[in-house]
Amino acid sequence: MAEQARGKVAVDVEECKGCGLCVESCPPKCLKLGPELNSYGAHPAHYSGRDCTGCGICFYCCPEPGAITVYRIKTKGKFVAATQGAEHAPAL
């Protein structure tokens, strides 16, 4: 089983308007617009399934409140919870 990616992205294909900003912004370039069209005629974004670091840049660059949901591997203790305001530098 391929080594699990640290992060994962779920896209609501019906809320996504296919603007492509997440694809452009994703540092590890693991998002792309799918070939199929959603019911509004837009190519929704898709996660390639690997390389996602869970950095969340796609969430902040996406104009749609609920189109993108980001997950990250819960590592035992090592996971440094971003404290209030402390900046968890996205991998750029």
């Binding site: 699990q4 969430f59 902040y60 993108i68 949901t69 980001v70 997950y71 990250r72 591997i73 819960k74």
Partner: peptide, 14 residues
Amino acid sequence: NNGYELVHSKSPLF
């Protein structure tokens, strides 16, 4: 089951 936890999703303010 896959050990992922949620980090960003639609805000309850919406």
